[in-house]
């Protein structure tokens, strides 16, 4: 009876979580949903007399694999939501047809079979010190070769990950001297103005004001500005709002532009931010030209 209740609760939870994994727009939610499914399955394992697997499920899957997923999600960009527009014609329809058909087929096949009452794990572990020693005996006697091969597999995987993720440095690392020289050769040797300078508030989302009262473009915090624009918390001052919007549009246009392959040159990467600063610091003429350019670039897309 206890098992039945546990099963029904966890079955509903896990199916719901699996559906959530598939249909949530944000990848982080999907990851969390996956975690729920895995934990539910761990409990189901435990219920089915597999305590070792339940522990491993929690430790390896929920602990290690899920953490890896989240880690990579953060690396890749947590803020990018998937577009809901399907680009491949007929893909959504046929995917659902195939998925439902396949699930039904399996369910029907399983449902058609009349199983005898489960034999239970009692016989398997009889004469041994429970589930874990029994498994250990199996692994280290009959399946010792497969086990050793898995060790090789794991080492290979670790090495492979290192090789894949490694980036060769093709020029010497920029020294303090290089960085300083680049900085002083640039348009802004000084630090960027902090937010809120000369403003009425010194909150992080307030751009700094120049002595003549205009907004210092370089002090706008992009992440917050984007968040504000998306959630509708735009500054009440229309002039500031327009300026922020302008900056964001320019950023979007730059992101949309095709990326020319990998750029492994870290010095350049490091300097890119300052290059942007140089762009921002341009006189008004540059801004107007940017305005004119933006629609064209959208057309070009």
């Amino acid at each position: 009876m206890g098992e039945t209740i546990t099963f029904w609760v966890l079955a509903v939870v896990s199916v719901a979580a699996a559906l959530g994994l598939v249909f949530s727009r944000k990848a982080v939610y999907s990851a969390l949903m996956l975690g729920v499914v895995m934990l539910s399955l761990a409990v189901l394992y435990a219920v089915q007399d597999a305590p070792f697997l339940a522990a491993v499920q929690i430790i390896v899957y929920t602990g290690a694999v899920m953490m890896l997923f989240l880690f990579v999600l953060m690396l890749v960009g947590v803020d990018s939501a998937d577009s809901l527009v399907e680009t491949i014609r007929g893909q959504r329809f046929w995917a659902i047809v195939a998925g439902l058909g396949f699930g039904l087929l399996l369910a029907l096949a399983v449902g058609n079979v009349a199983f005898s009452p489960a034999a239970g794990m009692g016989r398997a572990v009889s004469g041994r010190d429970g589930n874990v020693p029994a498994l250990a005996e199996e692994i280290f006697t009959r399946h010792v070769f497969a086990f050793e091969v898995t060790s090789a597999l794991l080492i290979t995987a670790a090495l492979g990950a290192m090789v894949l993720a490694h980036r060769e440095r093709v020029r010497p690392k920029a020294t303090q001297r290089d960085l300083a020289r680049t900085r002083f050769a640039g348009p802004q040797p000084s630090p960027l103005p902090g937010p809120g300078t000369y403003a009425l508030h010194n909150a992080i989302d307030m751009p700094a004001l120049l002595p003549d009262g205009t907004v210092a473009v370089t002090s706008i915090n992009r992440v917050l500005a984007r968040h504000e624009m998306e959630e509708g918390y735009a500054p009440t001052d229309p002039e500031k709002a327009a300026l922020i919007k302008q900056v964001l549009e320019k950023d979007a246009a730059r992101d949309a532009a095709p990326v020319e392959g990998d750029k492994p040159i870290q010095v350049k990467d490091a300097l890119q931010d300052e290059g942007e600063l140089r762009d921002e610091g341009e006189p008004q003429a540059g801004t107007t030209s940017r305005k004119e350019n933006a629609p064209q670039e959208e057309d070009g897309k």
Binding site: F7, E86, Q91, A95, I96, G103, L106, A118
Partner: peptide, 25 residues
């Protein structure tokens, strides 16, 4: 109970398959 577990397994498998087909991330 075995049937229940297996049907649950099939359901989860199908849902995963549909997810593979639908998601682009």
């Amino acid at each position: 109970m075995t049937t229940h577990y297996l049907v649950l397994s099939a359901l989860l498998f199908a849902i995963g398959g549909v997810g593979v087909l639908l998601r682009r991330n």
